[in-house]
Structures are given as C-alpha cells and as structure tokens.
C-alpha cells in the first residue's frame, strides 16, 4: 500500500460473495457501547469467504485512523454487506470498460480489475488513475505487473502535484484532453465507472457527458 492507506483482509464465515464494486458497512463499538458505522468499498475479486478493504487514513477522522493504525490483526469486526447493486461490473457484460479513479477511489475499481483477471475475461479495460504524487499510488507494483500481463488492460496514471523522474509531461489535474485520449470513445458505448472525491467525480462525469457518453452508462461513486 502507501504510507497512508492500509489493506485489511477479512475472513467471514458464511460470506455470500460479492460483485466487484460493492461495499460493506463496518461498525465499530467502544467498550461503553458507543458505536459508529462507515462504508468501505471491497477491493478484492470474489474469493470464497475472504475479502479485502482498502482504507485511506483521513487525518483527524474518527474511523479511518483506527482501522489503519490501531485495529489489531486477528480482531473481530462487525460487518454488513455486500451492499450496492448499481456501481458494479458484471463479467457477463461484454462492453468495454473505462475506469477513472481519484485517490483512494481506486478501491472498487481494483476489485473490477482483479475480478476481470480471475474470470479470464477478455473485456478491454482502461484505467485512468489520478494521484497527487508517485508515493500515493495504491497497488503500484500490482498495477505495473497487471498492465504487462493482463492482456487488454491499459493503465494510465495522472500525477496532479509531482510526477516521477523522467515522466513525460507536467503534473496537473485530469482534464478533457486526457480523458478523450485515454478513455474509450463514446462510439464504443463503454461502461464507465468513476470513483473518487466529490469534486473529482463531478468534473470527470461532466466531461464524459460533454464527450457524448450516455449519462446512464456513466456510473459514479463519490466520497468526502
């Protein structure tokens, strides 16, 4: 992971399985009974009774610092799910797929990329992943490997603050030109999944509509 994100793997007896893109509700309870709930996207492919959540630490947050820094390995956690039937990719759908992630919005999209490989799907995938700096790329090694080995998966990373040494181009926000170049064109009627902070998702989904995509094929998940 990165310095500020942690992947948590849960074994859940009786887990019914999930569709890539779904989330779970996590409930934490303090000793005096005080409890809070938050939703986290599943980042793993369906895999029996096991799944993974990727949690980005939000400094000053009530739940994410606990999940990232305190929750001990082996602890039990109350979970509910899988939840959500809209922001999901089904391997039976043959349309090409564009994935656009802002920061930790990569988590549910990673579940789709991993499920595609696990199912041996040949549906062409393009991932456009916006991060601040090279240190903020989640699953960096895995994405590099998959871009090489998973036939039909393209990975394009956009750096908004600082790019790696020798990177062609300058750091900057994801815009129309980049989406027009690296996403599937509207003519191909792709399924588009956009996940990230609210402002990012608003901007990116507006661009897709402006580029002629059917708004009903642009599925979004916002946080923050």
């Amino acid at each position: 992971m990165t310095a500020s994100a942690r992947s948590l793997v849960f074994d859940v007896p009786g887990w019914p399985g999930h569709l890539p893109g779904q989330h779970v509700d996590v409930r934490l309870t303090a000793e005096d009974g005080y409890s809070v709930q938050r939703s986290y996207s599943i980042s793993s492919a369906p895999d029996g009774e096991r799944f993974e959540l990727t949690v980005q630490r939000v400094d000053g947050g009530e739940v994410s610092p606990y999940l990232c820094d305190v929750l001990p390995v082996g602890a039990e956690v109350e979970l509910r799910g899988p939840v959500g039937g809209w922001f999901v990719w089904r391997a039976t759908d043959q349309a090409p797929v564009t994935l656009v992630a802002g920061g930790s919005g990569i988590a549910p999209l990673m579940a789709m990329i991993r499920a595609r490989a696990a199912e041996g799907s040949r549906v062409p995938f393009r991932l456009i992943y916006s991060v601040r700096t090279p240190d903020d790329v989640c699953y960096a090694d895995e994405l590099r490997r998959r871009a090489r080995e998973d036939g039909g998966l393209d990975v394009h990373i956009v750096y908004t603050r600082r790019a790696p040494e020798g990177w062609p181009g300058v750091p900057g926000r994801l815009g129309l030109a980049e989406l027009n170049t690296h996403a599937w064109p509207a003519d191909f009627a792709p399924n588009v999944f956009v996940c990230g902070p609210t402002g990012f998702v608003e901007t990116v989904s507006d661009v897709f509509v402006a580029l002629g995509h059917d708004p009903r094929r642009v599925r979004t998940e916002r946080f923050g």
Binding site: Q22, T29, V36, E62, Y66, P72, E78, L79, G85
Partner: peptide
C-alpha cells in the same frame, strides 16, 4: 446480491473493537 442481517453472529451483543474509543 445479498442483504439482510448483520453477518456477525452476535446480533444481540455488539463486538467490542479493541482500542476503539471514538468521538462522542
């Protein structure tokens, strides 16, 4: 899709999260 009861087997007794205090 599966929805329904919490997956934990302790519906009546919540699982205490070790070291969690939270912000009231």
């Amino acid at each position: 899709m599966a929805f329904g009861a919490p997956l934990s087997s302790t519906d009546t007794m919540p699982i205490v999260s070790p070291g969690f205090t939270g912000r009231r």
